[in-house]
Simulated scan of single mutants.
Amino acid sequence: MNADSAAWEQYSSARVVSPVQPRKLAKVPFVELADGRLQGVVSSGSDIDRVYVSSITAGTHSYNCSTNNNRPCGGLRGSPCKHLQALVEEAVLQYGADRVARYLRVEAGENVSVAGLVSGLRGGHESTPAAVVFNRFLRHLAYLELPETTEPIVELHWFPATGAVR
């Protein structure tokens, strides 16, 4: 190993960047800016066994919300539902309003707020499959259950080592 390597590079995990503000994970346990979308998993307000996969596409602002088995959200009636609003709220707590606005390419003015972000969305409903996001959420949960180790994680072994010369 290179003597200049940081100590954390020797471990099978990396430091996690803390959220901008503390989040309550019960309502929105998973939120990410990935694949050109703000996407995540939102708990149902009425059924403890149901979750919704919600997403907003960057640039076009098209949105979708459905259960993890692709049943459409009943709250999508020409505008973003409460699950999408909760997703935006949690994304702002996780990443900050400015970063979310830049990622989604929303014109929200100088003082970006959750209400400004949601009202700045100009797209409409566009169905997208929930399986990919839900699978990422389940994978995320599986990694949280792994015991701490300094040994490599087998399924991540294919990542190239930084600074390694072969």
Rank of each mutant, 00 (worst) to 15 (best):
R23L: 14
V88P: 09
S18H: 07
V41G: 10
A58F: 00
V41S: 09
L38G: 05
V114N: 03
A108Q: 05
G109S: 00
V42E: 03
D49S: 11
R99Q: 15
V100C: 12
C81Q: 05
S12V: 02
E32T: 15
A91V: 05
R50S: 06
P22Q: 04
V92C: 03
S46N: 08
S43Y: 01
V53K: 11
L87S: 03
S43K: 14
L93P: 00
D35W: 12
R23W: 00
A58D: 03
R102M: 10
L84P: 06
N70S: 15
V28Q: 04
V51T: 15
V20R: 13
E90C: 12
P80F: 05
Q85H: 12
R105S: 13
V92S: 03
E110G: 13
V31Y: 07
P80R: 00
E89L: 12
R99W: 00
E107W: 02
S46M: 09
A108V: 05
S55C: 15
Y95W: 14
V112D: 01
V114D: 10
S18T: 02
K24S: 12
V31E: 04
C65I: 09
Y103D: 06
G74R: 11
A34P: 01
A14S: 10
V16H: 03
S113K: 02
G78R: 11
S62T: 14
H83D: 08
C65E: 03
V114T: 15
Q39N: 10
Q39C: 13
K24N: 14
P29A: 13
L104F: 02
H61E: 09
E89W: 01
P80I: 07
D49C: 01
N68Y: 09
D47T: 10
G36M: 07
L25D: 08
G45C: 05
V17P: 01
Q10W: 04
D49H: 14
V88E: 08
S18V: 00
A58I: 02
H83Q: 10
V31W: 04
D35K: 14
G36R: 13
N69P: 00
V20Q: 12
V100M: 08
G40H: 11
P80K: 02
V41Y: 01
Y52R: 02
L38P: 08
T67R: 02
R99E: 15
A34M: 11
S66Y: 07
R37V: 00
A115M: 07
S113F: 00
T67L: 07
Y95D: 00
A34I: 00
E110S: 14
A108L: 01
C65T: 09
N64C: 14
A101P: 11
V28N: 00
E89F: 01
G74N: 13
V53T: 07
E32D: 08
K27P: 04
